[in-house]
Nucleic acid binder design. Structure first.
Length: 614
DNA sequence: AGCACGCCGACT
DNA sequence: GTCGGCGTGCTC
Protein backbone atom coordinates (compact mmCIF):
# COMPACT_ATOMS: atom_id res chain seq x y z
CA UNK A 1 0.00 0.00 0.00
CA UNK A 2 1.20 3.49 -0.83
CA UNK A 3 -0.07 6.66 0.79
CA UNK A 4 0.33 10.22 -0.45
CA UNK A 5 0.92 13.04 2.05
CA UNK A 6 -1.16 15.90 0.69
CA UNK A 7 -1.38 19.59 1.66
CA UNK A 8 -4.12 21.93 0.48
CA UNK A 9 -4.40 25.66 -0.11
CA UNK A 10 -6.41 26.28 3.06
CA UNK A 11 -5.30 27.66 6.42
CA UNK A 12 -5.01 24.12 7.83
CA UNK A 13 -1.68 22.52 8.36
CA UNK A 14 -1.93 18.88 7.41
CA UNK A 15 -0.47 17.04 5.62
CA UNK A 16 -3.39 14.65 5.03
CA UNK A 17 -2.88 11.04 3.99
CA UNK A 18 -4.60 9.60 0.91
CA UNK A 19 -4.48 6.11 -0.51
CA UNK A 20 -2.73 5.81 -3.86
CA UNK A 21 -4.70 3.33 -6.02
CA UNK A 22 -2.53 0.37 -7.04
CA UNK A 23 -2.57 1.30 -10.73
CA UNK A 24 -1.05 4.72 -9.97
CA UNK A 25 1.75 3.66 -7.68
CA UNK A 26 4.26 4.02 -10.53
CA UNK A 27 2.74 7.29 -11.73
CA UNK A 28 2.65 9.34 -8.56
CA UNK A 29 5.55 11.59 -7.56
CA UNK A 30 6.34 14.04 -4.82
CA UNK A 31 5.55 17.56 -6.05
CA UNK A 32 2.58 16.66 -8.28
CA UNK A 33 -0.95 18.02 -8.01
CA UNK A 34 -3.84 15.67 -7.23
CA UNK A 35 -7.60 15.88 -6.96
CA UNK A 36 -8.89 14.67 -3.59
CA UNK A 37 -12.11 14.65 -1.62
CA UNK A 38 -11.59 16.85 1.39
CA UNK A 39 -14.46 16.98 3.84
CA UNK A 40 -17.38 17.17 1.51
CA UNK A 41 -15.54 19.00 -1.26
CA UNK A 42 -13.35 18.00 -4.15
CA UNK A 43 -10.22 20.13 -4.11
CA UNK A 44 -6.72 20.37 -5.47
CA UNK A 45 -3.97 19.01 -3.27
CA UNK A 46 -0.19 18.94 -3.47
CA UNK A 47 1.76 15.76 -2.81
CA UNK A 48 4.57 16.61 -0.38
CA UNK A 49 5.51 13.06 0.57
CA UNK A 50 4.90 9.35 0.01
CA UNK A 51 4.69 6.66 2.72
CA UNK A 52 4.17 2.94 3.01
CA UNK A 53 2.17 3.26 6.21
CA UNK A 54 -0.50 5.50 7.66
CA UNK A 55 -1.98 6.00 11.10
CA UNK A 56 -5.26 7.19 9.63
CA UNK A 57 -8.22 4.80 9.85
CA UNK A 58 -10.82 6.25 7.47
CA UNK A 59 -8.66 6.89 4.45
CA UNK A 60 -9.88 8.29 1.13
CA UNK A 61 -8.23 7.62 -2.22
CA UNK A 62 -6.44 10.04 -4.53
CA UNK A 63 -9.03 10.75 -7.25
CA UNK A 64 -6.73 11.88 -10.02
CA UNK A 65 -3.12 12.83 -10.68
CA UNK A 66 -2.74 15.96 -12.78
CA UNK A 67 0.97 15.93 -13.49
CA UNK A 68 3.29 13.37 -14.98
CA UNK A 69 6.20 15.35 -13.53
CA UNK A 70 6.47 17.38 -10.35
CA UNK A 71 5.33 20.99 -10.74
CA UNK A 72 7.37 21.75 -7.63
CA UNK A 73 10.87 20.34 -7.45
CA UNK A 74 12.52 19.34 -4.21
CA UNK A 75 14.00 22.76 -3.50
CA UNK A 76 10.76 24.62 -4.14
CA UNK A 77 8.96 22.22 -1.80
CA UNK A 78 11.57 22.89 0.88
CA UNK A 79 11.35 26.63 0.24
CA UNK A 80 7.56 26.74 0.55
CA UNK A 81 7.72 24.66 3.73
CA UNK A 82 10.33 26.93 5.26
CA UNK A 83 8.27 30.00 4.39
CA UNK A 84 5.17 28.46 5.96
CA UNK A 85 7.15 27.80 9.14
CA UNK A 86 8.54 31.32 9.16
CA UNK A 87 5.42 33.26 8.22
CA UNK A 88 2.94 31.29 10.34
CA UNK A 89 0.70 29.93 7.62
CA UNK A 90 0.03 26.55 6.05
CA UNK A 91 2.37 24.86 3.60
CA UNK A 92 -0.44 24.64 1.05
CA UNK A 93 -1.07 28.37 1.21
CA UNK A 94 2.55 29.08 0.27
CA UNK A 95 2.48 26.47 -2.50
CA UNK A 96 -0.55 28.18 -3.98
CA UNK A 97 1.25 31.54 -4.12
CA UNK A 98 4.25 29.84 -5.70
CA UNK A 99 2.29 28.45 -8.65
CA UNK A 100 0.88 30.30 -11.66
CA UNK A 101 -2.86 30.84 -11.74
CA UNK A 102 -3.58 28.19 -14.36
CA UNK A 103 -1.95 25.47 -12.25
CA UNK A 104 -3.76 26.59 -9.11
CA UNK A 105 -7.01 26.25 -11.00
CA UNK A 106 -6.30 22.63 -11.97
CA UNK A 107 -5.19 23.03 -15.58
CA UNK A 108 -3.27 19.99 -16.76
CA UNK A 109 0.35 20.55 -17.46
CA UNK A 110 2.86 18.46 -19.38
CA UNK A 111 6.17 20.17 -19.97
CA UNK A 112 8.87 18.64 -22.09
CA UNK A 113 11.52 16.91 -20.09
CA UNK A 114 14.17 19.50 -19.32
CA UNK A 115 17.41 19.47 -21.33
CA UNK A 116 20.09 17.06 -20.29
CA UNK A 117 21.77 19.20 -17.65
CA UNK A 118 25.00 19.93 -19.44
CA UNK A 119 27.18 19.83 -16.35
CA UNK A 120 26.41 22.99 -14.45
CA UNK A 121 29.50 24.65 -13.03
CA UNK A 122 30.40 24.99 -9.39
CA UNK A 123 29.05 27.91 -7.48
CA UNK A 124 30.40 29.78 -4.50
CA UNK A 125 27.30 30.56 -2.36
CA UNK A 126 27.99 34.18 -1.69
CA UNK A 127 25.69 36.98 -0.58
CA UNK A 128 26.45 40.51 -1.63
CA UNK A 129 24.85 43.83 -0.74
CA UNK A 130 25.53 46.66 -3.15
CA UNK A 131 25.00 50.19 -1.96
CA UNK A 132 25.33 52.69 -4.75
CA UNK A 133 24.11 56.25 -5.21
CA UNK A 134 22.11 55.45 -8.34
CA UNK A 135 21.16 52.35 -10.24
CA UNK A 136 23.92 52.51 -12.86
CA UNK A 137 26.80 51.15 -10.79
CA UNK A 138 24.92 48.21 -9.35
CA UNK A 139 23.46 47.25 -12.70
CA UNK A 140 26.96 46.93 -14.11
CA UNK A 141 27.66 44.42 -11.35
CA UNK A 142 24.35 42.62 -11.92
CA UNK A 143 24.97 42.26 -15.64
CA UNK A 144 28.53 40.97 -15.16
CA UNK A 145 27.30 38.43 -12.59
CA UNK A 146 24.38 37.33 -14.78
CA UNK A 147 26.76 36.80 -17.68
CA UNK A 148 29.14 34.80 -15.51
CA UNK A 149 26.28 32.66 -14.19
CA UNK A 150 24.72 31.76 -17.53
CA UNK A 151 28.19 30.99 -18.88
CA UNK A 152 28.31 28.23 -16.23
CA UNK A 153 25.00 26.84 -17.59
CA UNK A 154 23.17 28.07 -14.55
CA UNK A 155 20.08 30.23 -14.37
CA UNK A 156 19.28 33.59 -12.83
CA UNK A 157 16.27 35.13 -11.11
CA UNK A 158 16.10 38.90 -10.97
CA UNK A 159 13.44 40.62 -8.87
CA UNK A 160 12.12 44.14 -9.38
CA UNK A 161 9.99 46.05 -6.91
CA UNK A 162 7.32 47.30 -9.30
CA UNK A 163 6.22 47.25 -12.94
CA UNK A 164 8.11 50.39 -13.81
CA UNK A 165 11.37 49.05 -12.40
CA UNK A 166 10.72 45.74 -14.10
CA UNK A 167 10.39 47.31 -17.55
CA UNK A 168 13.59 49.26 -16.95
CA UNK A 169 15.36 46.08 -15.85
CA UNK A 170 14.10 44.27 -18.93
CA UNK A 171 15.64 47.00 -21.08
CA UNK A 172 18.93 46.85 -19.22
CA UNK A 173 19.23 43.09 -19.51
CA UNK A 174 18.26 43.05 -23.18
CA UNK A 175 20.61 45.89 -24.06
CA UNK A 176 23.46 44.74 -21.84
CA UNK A 177 23.46 41.03 -22.65
CA UNK A 178 21.50 40.71 -25.86
CA UNK A 179 19.15 38.20 -24.19
CA UNK A 180 15.45 38.82 -23.61
CA UNK A 181 14.62 37.61 -20.10
CA UNK A 182 11.50 35.56 -19.42
CA UNK A 183 8.97 37.74 -17.63
CA UNK A 184 6.95 36.15 -14.87
CA UNK A 185 3.65 37.66 -13.76
CA UNK A 186 1.74 35.54 -11.29
CA UNK A 187 -1.58 37.12 -12.11
CA UNK A 188 -1.74 36.65 -15.86
CA UNK A 189 -3.39 33.47 -17.11
CA UNK A 190 -1.02 33.35 -20.08
CA UNK A 191 1.83 33.45 -17.55
CA UNK A 192 1.88 29.66 -17.76
CA UNK A 193 3.66 29.87 -21.11
CA UNK A 194 6.65 31.71 -19.63
CA UNK A 195 6.57 29.48 -16.56
CA UNK A 196 6.71 26.40 -18.80
CA UNK A 197 9.65 27.78 -20.75
CA UNK A 198 11.56 28.32 -17.52
CA UNK A 199 10.67 24.87 -16.22
CA UNK A 200 11.79 23.29 -19.49
CA UNK A 201 15.12 25.08 -19.20
CA UNK A 202 14.47 27.18 -22.30
CA UNK A 203 14.76 30.48 -20.43
CA UNK A 204 17.84 31.01 -18.32
CA UNK A 205 17.13 34.52 -17.11
CA UNK A 206 13.89 35.21 -15.27
CA UNK A 207 12.68 38.68 -14.43
CA UNK A 208 9.67 39.37 -12.26
CA UNK A 209 8.30 40.94 -9.12
CA UNK A 210 7.89 39.43 -5.65
CA UNK A 211 6.44 36.07 -6.71
CA UNK A 212 9.19 35.41 -9.27
CA UNK A 213 11.32 34.24 -6.33
CA UNK A 214 9.37 30.98 -6.88
CA UNK A 215 10.35 30.68 -10.56
CA UNK A 216 10.86 27.01 -11.49
CA UNK A 217 14.42 27.61 -12.71
CA UNK A 218 16.79 24.66 -13.01
CA UNK A 219 20.37 24.94 -11.76
CA UNK A 220 19.75 28.25 -10.10
CA UNK A 221 23.04 30.11 -9.79
CA UNK A 222 22.06 33.65 -8.88
CA UNK A 223 19.19 35.59 -7.34
CA UNK A 224 19.13 39.38 -7.57
CA UNK A 225 16.84 41.53 -5.45
CA UNK A 226 17.00 45.05 -6.83
CA UNK A 227 15.82 47.93 -4.61
CA UNK A 228 15.75 45.45 -1.77
CA UNK A 229 14.53 48.10 0.71
CA UNK A 230 11.26 48.46 -1.19
CA UNK A 231 8.16 47.65 0.86
CA UNK A 232 6.37 46.07 -2.08
CA UNK A 233 8.51 42.94 -1.66
CA UNK A 234 6.35 42.19 1.34
CA UNK A 235 2.99 40.60 0.52
CA UNK A 236 0.12 42.26 2.34
CA UNK A 237 -2.05 39.15 2.21
CA UNK A 238 -1.47 35.67 3.59
CA UNK A 239 1.16 34.38 3.21
CA UNK A 240 2.82 37.60 4.36
CA UNK A 241 6.22 36.70 2.96
CA UNK A 242 9.03 39.08 2.10
CA UNK A 243 10.77 38.30 -1.19
CA UNK A 244 14.16 39.28 0.26
CA UNK A 245 13.79 36.74 3.05
CA UNK A 246 12.51 34.15 0.57
CA UNK A 247 15.49 34.89 -1.69
CA UNK A 248 17.85 34.17 1.21
CA UNK A 249 16.15 30.86 1.90
CA UNK A 250 16.21 29.91 -1.75
CA UNK A 251 19.86 30.88 -2.10
CA UNK A 252 20.80 28.55 0.76
CA UNK A 253 18.71 25.68 -0.61
CA UNK A 254 20.05 25.99 -4.14
CA UNK A 255 23.57 26.97 -3.10
CA UNK A 256 23.20 29.96 -5.38
CA UNK A 257 24.65 33.45 -5.11
CA UNK A 258 22.53 36.32 -3.91
CA UNK A 259 22.85 40.01 -4.67
CA UNK A 260 20.84 42.70 -2.92
CA UNK A 261 21.04 46.19 -4.37
CA UNK A 262 19.86 49.55 -3.13
CA UNK A 263 20.84 53.18 -2.83
CA UNK A 264 19.45 53.21 0.70
CA UNK A 265 19.60 49.62 1.98
CA UNK A 266 17.13 48.32 4.53
CA UNK A 267 18.28 48.06 8.13
CA UNK A 268 17.86 44.29 7.77
CA UNK A 269 20.41 44.18 4.97
CA UNK A 270 22.81 46.59 6.69
CA UNK A 271 22.63 44.56 9.87
CA UNK A 272 23.65 41.42 7.98
CA UNK A 273 26.54 43.35 6.46
CA UNK A 274 27.64 44.51 9.92
CA UNK A 275 27.61 40.91 11.13
CA UNK A 276 29.54 39.88 7.99
CA UNK A 277 26.72 37.57 6.94
CA UNK A 278 26.69 39.42 3.64
CA UNK A 279 29.48 41.20 1.83
CA UNK A 280 29.02 44.94 1.41
CA UNK A 281 30.14 46.70 -1.73
CA UNK A 282 29.81 50.47 -1.82
CA UNK A 283 30.38 52.97 -4.59
CA UNK A 284 31.63 56.53 -4.28
CA UNK A 285 29.06 59.29 -4.30
CA UNK A 286 28.68 61.16 -7.53
CA UNK A 287 31.21 63.93 -8.05
CA UNK A 288 28.48 66.56 -8.31
CA UNK A 289 26.74 65.48 -5.09
CA UNK A 290 24.30 68.30 -4.30
CA UNK A 291 24.47 70.58 -1.32
CA UNK A 292 22.14 69.42 1.44
CA UNK A 293 20.93 72.30 3.57
CA UNK A 294 19.21 71.46 6.84
CA UNK A 295 17.18 74.45 7.99
CA UNK A 296 16.01 74.67 11.59
CA UNK A 297 12.47 76.03 11.31
CA UNK A 298 11.82 76.40 15.02
CA UNK A 299 12.24 80.16 14.91
CA UNK A 300 12.23 80.90 11.26
CA UNK A 301 9.64 83.11 9.54
CA UNK A 302 7.13 81.61 7.15
CA UNK A 303 5.37 83.23 4.25
CA UNK A 304 2.81 85.58 5.66
CA UNK A 305 -0.23 83.77 4.37
CA UNK A 306 -2.23 82.26 7.18
CA UNK A 307 -2.09 78.50 7.30
CA UNK A 308 1.17 78.25 5.38
CA UNK A 309 3.30 76.06 7.58
CA UNK A 310 5.11 74.14 4.88
CA UNK A 311 7.12 76.71 2.94
CA UNK A 312 9.50 78.78 5.03
CA UNK A 313 10.78 82.17 3.96
CA UNK A 314 14.12 80.51 3.41
CA UNK A 315 12.69 77.98 0.99
CA UNK A 316 10.62 80.67 -0.67
CA UNK A 317 13.74 82.74 -1.32
CA UNK A 318 15.58 79.73 -2.66
CA UNK A 319 12.66 79.04 -5.02
CA UNK A 320 12.78 82.68 -6.17
CA UNK A 321 16.47 82.40 -6.95
CA UNK A 322 15.95 79.18 -8.84
CA UNK A 323 13.16 80.73 -10.89
CA UNK A 324 15.27 83.82 -11.56
CA UNK A 325 18.04 81.67 -13.01
CA UNK A 326 15.50 79.73 -15.12
CA UNK A 327 16.09 76.60 -13.05
CA UNK A 328 13.69 73.78 -12.16
CA UNK A 329 12.43 72.96 -8.68
CA UNK A 330 10.73 69.90 -7.17
CA UNK A 331 8.69 69.92 -3.98
CA UNK A 332 7.81 66.61 -2.42
CA UNK A 333 4.82 66.16 -0.15
CA UNK A 334 3.39 62.82 0.80
CA UNK A 335 -0.25 63.91 0.98
CA UNK A 336 -2.53 63.92 -2.00
CA UNK A 337 -5.55 66.16 -2.38
CA UNK A 338 -6.17 69.71 -1.27
CA UNK A 339 -6.98 69.53 2.43
CA UNK A 340 -6.46 66.60 4.74
CA UNK A 341 -9.35 67.40 7.00
CA UNK A 342 -12.82 68.90 6.60
CA UNK A 343 -14.74 70.07 9.64
CA UNK A 344 -17.79 72.15 10.47
CA UNK A 345 -17.03 75.70 11.50
CA UNK A 346 -19.98 75.77 13.83
CA UNK A 347 -20.39 72.30 15.44
CA UNK A 348 -16.74 71.21 14.89
CA UNK A 349 -17.83 67.88 13.44
CA UNK A 350 -15.02 66.36 11.37
CA UNK A 351 -16.17 64.60 8.21
CA UNK A 352 -15.04 60.99 8.24
CA UNK A 353 -15.34 57.96 6.00
CA UNK A 354 -18.47 56.03 7.04
CA UNK A 355 -16.71 52.73 6.42
CA UNK A 356 -13.17 53.46 7.64
CA UNK A 357 -13.63 56.27 10.15
CA UNK A 358 -10.62 58.22 8.86
CA UNK A 359 -10.66 61.87 7.84
CA UNK A 360 -12.00 62.44 4.36
CA UNK A 361 -9.56 64.31 2.13
CA UNK A 362 -10.86 67.22 0.10
CA UNK A 363 -9.97 67.13 -3.59
CA UNK A 364 -10.24 70.38 -5.46
CA UNK A 365 -10.66 68.68 -8.81
CA UNK A 366 -14.24 67.44 -8.80
CA UNK A 367 -14.99 69.25 -5.52
CA UNK A 368 -15.13 65.91 -3.75
CA UNK A 369 -14.25 64.36 -0.43
CA UNK A 370 -12.59 60.98 -0.69
CA UNK A 371 -11.34 58.23 1.60
CA UNK A 372 -7.65 57.47 1.36
CA UNK A 373 -8.17 53.81 2.26
CA UNK A 374 -11.34 52.52 0.58
CA UNK A 375 -11.82 55.12 -2.15
CA UNK A 376 -15.24 56.17 -0.83
CA UNK A 377 -16.21 59.45 -2.55
CA UNK A 378 -18.84 62.08 -1.88
CA UNK A 379 -19.54 65.57 -3.18
CA UNK A 380 -18.22 68.19 -0.81
CA UNK A 381 -21.25 69.51 1.14
CA UNK A 382 -21.93 73.26 1.21
CA UNK A 383 -23.17 73.18 4.77
CA UNK A 384 -22.49 70.76 7.59
CA UNK A 385 -24.50 67.54 7.20
CA UNK A 386 -24.50 67.19 10.98
CA UNK A 387 -25.90 70.49 12.23
CA UNK A 388 -27.20 71.82 8.92
CA UNK A 389 -25.95 75.30 9.67
CA UNK A 390 -22.19 75.82 9.75
CA UNK A 391 -20.05 75.92 6.65
CA UNK A 392 -17.17 73.48 6.15
CA UNK A 393 -13.59 74.55 6.79
CA UNK A 394 -10.70 72.79 5.25
CA UNK A 395 -7.41 72.37 7.09
CA UNK A 396 -4.22 70.41 6.58
CA UNK A 397 -2.21 70.68 3.39
CA UNK A 398 -2.05 68.30 0.44
CA UNK A 399 -0.29 68.66 -2.89
CA UNK A 400 -3.26 70.45 -4.48
CA UNK A 401 -3.08 73.18 -1.86
CA UNK A 402 0.70 73.51 -2.23
CA UNK A 403 0.14 73.91 -5.93
CA UNK A 404 -2.32 76.77 -5.40
CA UNK A 405 -0.11 78.33 -2.68
CA UNK A 406 2.79 78.33 -5.11
CA UNK A 407 0.77 80.02 -7.85
CA UNK A 408 -0.11 82.73 -5.35
CA UNK A 409 3.49 83.23 -4.19
CA UNK A 410 4.97 82.94 -7.67
CA UNK A 411 2.27 84.16 -10.08
CA UNK A 412 4.75 84.29 -12.95
CA UNK A 413 5.96 80.69 -12.52
CA UNK A 414 4.51 77.60 -14.17
CA UNK A 415 3.50 75.08 -11.51
CA UNK A 416 2.79 71.41 -12.22
CA UNK A 417 1.42 68.82 -9.86
CA UNK A 418 2.43 65.31 -10.87
CA UNK A 419 0.03 62.56 -9.92
CA UNK A 420 -0.93 59.19 -11.30
CA UNK A 421 -2.74 60.74 -14.22
CA UNK A 422 -0.31 63.22 -15.68
CA UNK A 423 3.28 62.31 -16.31
CA UNK A 424 6.21 64.57 -15.76
CA UNK A 425 7.62 66.52 -18.64
CA UNK A 426 10.50 68.65 -17.48
CA UNK A 427 9.70 71.30 -20.09
CA UNK A 428 6.13 71.74 -18.85
CA UNK A 429 6.76 73.80 -15.76
CA UNK A 430 9.23 75.50 -13.43
CA UNK A 431 8.10 74.09 -10.11
CA UNK A 432 6.86 70.51 -9.77
CA UNK A 433 4.88 69.11 -6.85
CA UNK A 434 4.97 65.33 -6.38
CA UNK A 435 3.96 62.59 -3.96
CA UNK A 436 5.72 59.37 -3.06
CA UNK A 437 3.66 57.22 -5.42
CA UNK A 438 5.40 58.68 -8.45
CA UNK A 439 8.75 59.82 -7.06
CA UNK A 440 10.42 56.65 -8.33
CA UNK A 441 9.16 57.24 -11.82
CA UNK A 442 10.89 60.58 -12.17
CA UNK A 443 14.06 60.42 -14.16
CA UNK A 444 15.21 64.04 -14.27
CA UNK A 445 17.42 66.39 -12.28
CA UNK A 446 16.10 69.48 -10.53
CA UNK A 447 18.20 72.43 -9.44
CA UNK A 448 16.32 72.78 -6.18
CA UNK A 449 14.49 70.05 -4.28
CA UNK A 450 12.74 70.02 -0.93
CA UNK A 451 10.73 67.51 1.06
CA UNK A 452 7.89 69.36 2.72
CA UNK A 453 6.64 68.31 6.13
CA UNK A 454 9.60 66.03 6.66
CA UNK A 455 9.03 66.12 10.43
CA UNK A 456 5.62 64.56 9.92
CA UNK A 457 7.24 61.70 8.09
CA UNK A 458 9.85 61.33 10.82
CA UNK A 459 7.48 61.50 13.77
CA UNK A 460 4.98 58.88 12.67
CA UNK A 461 4.21 56.19 15.21
CA UNK A 462 6.14 53.58 13.30
CA UNK A 463 9.57 52.36 14.26
CA UNK A 464 10.52 52.42 10.58
CA UNK A 465 9.67 56.13 10.21
CA UNK A 466 13.33 57.22 10.14
CA UNK A 467 14.25 54.44 7.71
CA UNK A 468 11.43 55.37 5.34
CA UNK A 469 12.30 59.06 5.55
CA UNK A 470 15.94 58.26 4.82
CA UNK A 471 14.86 56.23 1.79
CA UNK A 472 12.70 59.06 0.43
CA UNK A 473 15.41 61.66 1.01
CA UNK A 474 18.04 59.46 -0.63
CA UNK A 475 15.79 59.20 -3.67
CA UNK A 476 15.34 62.97 -3.64
CA UNK A 477 19.12 63.49 -3.50
CA UNK A 478 19.34 61.43 -6.67
CA UNK A 479 16.94 63.86 -8.35
CA UNK A 480 18.78 66.95 -7.14
CA UNK A 481 21.22 68.79 -9.37
CA UNK A 482 22.33 71.54 -7.01
CA UNK A 483 20.59 71.90 -3.68
CA UNK A 484 18.31 69.91 -1.40
CA UNK A 485 16.61 71.87 1.37
CA UNK A 486 15.34 70.12 4.47
CA UNK A 487 13.10 72.16 6.77
CA UNK A 488 12.92 70.59 10.21
CA UNK A 489 12.53 71.30 13.90
CA UNK A 490 15.00 68.52 14.58
CA UNK A 491 18.13 69.41 12.57
CA UNK A 492 20.39 67.10 14.58
CA UNK A 493 18.47 63.98 13.60
CA UNK A 494 20.76 61.24 12.28
CA UNK A 495 18.79 61.05 9.02
CA UNK A 496 19.74 64.64 8.24
CA UNK A 497 23.28 64.48 9.62
CA UNK A 498 23.99 61.51 7.37
CA UNK A 499 22.75 63.34 4.27
CA UNK A 500 24.40 66.66 5.07
CA UNK A 501 27.72 64.95 5.79
CA UNK A 502 27.44 62.60 2.77
CA UNK A 503 27.99 59.69 5.12
CA UNK A 504 25.16 57.16 5.26
CA UNK A 505 27.03 55.30 8.02
CA UNK A 506 25.92 58.03 10.41
CA UNK A 507 22.33 57.05 9.79
CA UNK A 508 22.83 53.28 9.88
CA UNK A 509 25.01 53.23 13.00
CA UNK A 510 22.64 55.39 15.02
CA UNK A 511 19.47 53.71 13.75
CA UNK A 512 20.84 50.23 14.45
CA UNK A 513 21.85 51.36 17.92
CA UNK A 514 18.33 52.59 18.64
CA UNK A 515 16.72 49.47 17.21
CA UNK A 516 18.92 47.31 19.40
CA UNK A 517 18.10 49.31 22.52
CA UNK A 518 14.38 49.15 21.85
CA UNK A 519 14.36 45.49 20.85
CA UNK A 520 13.06 46.21 17.35
CA UNK A 521 13.97 44.55 14.05
CA UNK A 522 16.49 43.62 12.78
CA UNK A 523 17.60 42.64 16.31
CA UNK A 524 14.31 41.00 17.19
CA UNK A 525 11.31 39.89 15.19
CA UNK A 526 7.80 41.22 15.58
CA UNK A 527 4.54 39.51 14.72
CA UNK A 528 1.31 41.39 14.32
CA UNK A 529 -1.74 39.32 15.15
CA UNK A 530 -4.69 41.05 13.50
CA UNK A 531 -8.19 40.60 14.85
CA UNK A 532 -10.96 41.59 12.46
CA UNK A 533 -14.75 41.62 12.67
CA UNK A 534 -17.96 43.56 11.98
CA UNK A 535 -18.85 43.89 15.66
CA UNK A 536 -16.52 46.39 17.30
CA UNK A 537 -17.25 45.39 20.90
CA UNK A 538 -16.57 41.78 20.08
CA UNK A 539 -13.32 42.61 18.27
CA UNK A 540 -12.10 44.53 21.32
CA UNK A 541 -13.18 41.80 23.70
CA UNK A 542 -11.57 39.02 21.67
CA UNK A 543 -8.36 41.06 21.19
CA UNK A 544 -8.04 41.61 24.92
CA UNK A 545 -8.72 37.94 25.59
CA UNK A 546 -6.05 37.02 23.03
CA UNK A 547 -3.57 39.39 24.62
CA UNK A 548 -4.19 37.84 28.06
CA UNK A 549 -3.92 34.36 26.60
CA UNK A 550 -0.58 35.05 24.89
CA UNK A 551 0.85 37.18 27.69
CA UNK A 552 0.33 34.48 30.31
CA UNK A 553 2.79 32.32 28.42
CA UNK A 554 6.11 33.43 29.82
CA UNK A 555 7.94 31.65 27.06
CA UNK A 556 11.59 32.49 27.07
CA UNK A 557 12.56 34.91 24.30
CA UNK A 558 8.92 35.49 23.34
CA UNK A 559 7.12 38.51 24.70
CA UNK A 560 3.59 39.71 24.06
CA UNK A 561 3.94 43.47 23.97
CA UNK A 562 0.67 45.25 23.38
CA UNK A 563 -2.94 45.17 22.31
CA UNK A 564 -4.40 48.18 20.52
CA UNK A 565 -6.46 49.33 17.55
CA UNK A 566 -4.76 48.66 14.22
CA UNK A 567 -4.33 51.46 11.76
CA UNK A 568 -6.71 52.01 10.22
CA UNK A 569 -8.88 50.82 13.11
CA UNK A 570 -11.82 50.55 10.75
CA UNK A 571 -11.67 49.57 7.10
CA UNK A 572 -14.51 48.82 4.70
CA UNK A 573 -16.91 48.34 7.58
CA UNK A 574 -14.63 45.97 9.51
CA UNK A 575 -13.00 46.79 12.82
CA UNK A 576 -9.33 45.93 13.29
CA UNK A 577 -7.31 45.45 16.44
CA UNK A 578 -3.84 44.03 16.77
CA UNK A 579 -1.69 42.23 19.29
CA UNK A 580 2.07 42.66 18.91
CA UNK A 581 4.44 39.87 19.89
CA UNK A 582 8.21 40.05 19.90
CA UNK A 583 10.80 37.27 19.71
CA UNK A 584 14.46 36.61 18.99
CA UNK A 585 13.71 33.95 16.42
CA UNK A 586 11.02 34.24 13.76
CA UNK A 587 10.42 30.51 13.38
CA UNK A 588 9.97 30.05 17.14
CA UNK A 589 7.59 32.99 17.15
CA UNK A 590 5.63 31.52 14.29
CA UNK A 591 5.46 28.08 15.93
CA UNK A 592 4.33 29.64 19.20
CA UNK A 593 1.53 31.58 17.52
CA UNK A 594 0.38 28.69 15.33
CA UNK A 595 0.12 26.61 18.47
CA UNK A 596 -1.75 29.15 20.56
CA UNK A 597 -4.13 30.26 17.83
CA UNK A 598 -5.18 26.75 16.86
CA UNK A 599 -7.82 26.57 19.56
CA UNK A 600 -8.54 30.28 19.62
CA UNK A 601 -11.56 30.69 17.40
CA UNK A 602 -14.50 33.02 17.87
CA UNK A 603 -17.47 33.34 15.59
CA UNK A 604 -17.51 36.44 13.43
CA UNK A 605 -13.85 37.08 14.18
CA UNK A 606 -11.00 36.49 11.79
CA UNK A 607 -7.48 36.25 13.15
CA UNK A 608 -4.42 36.55 10.90
CA UNK A 609 -0.70 36.67 11.65
CA UNK A 610 1.87 38.87 9.95
CA UNK A 611 5.46 38.00 10.85
CA UNK A 612 7.97 40.85 10.27
CA UNK A 613 5.25 43.41 9.43
CA UNK A 614 6.27 46.60 7.66
C1' DA B 1 -11.63 28.56 4.40
C1' DG B 2 -16.07 26.03 3.97
C1' DC B 3 -19.44 23.17 5.68
C1' DA B 4 -22.17 20.14 8.74
C1' DC B 5 -23.82 19.41 13.22
C1' DG B 6 -26.13 21.11 17.19
C1' DC B 7 -28.79 23.76 20.32
C1' DC B 8 -32.40 27.76 21.43
C1' DG B 9 -36.22 31.59 19.60
C1' DA B 10 -40.67 32.96 16.49
C1' DC B 11 -43.46 31.03 12.71
C1' DT B 12 -46.95 28.05 9.39
C1' DG C 1 -44.20 21.00 16.88
C1' DT C 2 -40.07 22.84 12.98
C1' DC C 3 -37.46 26.47 10.32
C1' DG C 4 -33.34 28.73 10.88
C1' DG C 5 -30.25 31.72 13.64
C1' DC C 6 -25.16 31.26 14.31
C1' DG C 7 -21.66 29.06 17.62
C1' DT C 8 -18.29 25.04 17.38
C1' DG C 9 -15.45 21.71 15.42
C1' DC C 10 -13.42 19.00 11.61
C1' DT C 11 -11.34 18.12 7.25
C1' DC C 12 -6.85 12.15 5.75
Amino acid sequence: MLYAKVVVGLPIDGPFDYLVPQSWVQKINIGVRVWVNFGNRRILGYVVGLAKKTAIKKIKPVLDILDARAVLDRNLLLLTKELADYYCCSWGEVIETALPEALRKGKRFSPEIGPSQDNPGQNSLEALLIQDPDAKARWDVYLAKIKETIAKNMSVICLSADTRALLKAQERISAGLGIAPAILYRKRAEGLEEWTKIKEGKARIVLGMRSAVFAPSNNLGLVIVDEEQDGSYKQDQVPHYHAREAAFMRMRLEKANLILGSSAPSLEAMYLAKKSKIKLQTFPLRADFPKVEVIDIKNVPFSQRKGNVLISRYLEDALSLTLASRGKALLFLNRKGFATSASCNSCAKVLKCPRCNVNLVYHFSGNQLSCHYCNFKMDAPKICPECNSGYIRYTGTGTEKIESELSRIFPQARISRIDNHNKLNILDADIFVATQAIIKEIDARFDLVSMLSVDNSLNRIDFRAAEKTFDILSNLVRLTAKKLIIQTRNPKHHVFLALANKESGIFYDEELKQRRQLGFPPYQHLARVKVRGINEAKVIQVSNALFQRLAQDTHKNIKTISVNPAQPAKLRGNFYWQVLVRAKDAKNLSRFLKNRLKKFSHSGIIVTVDVDPI
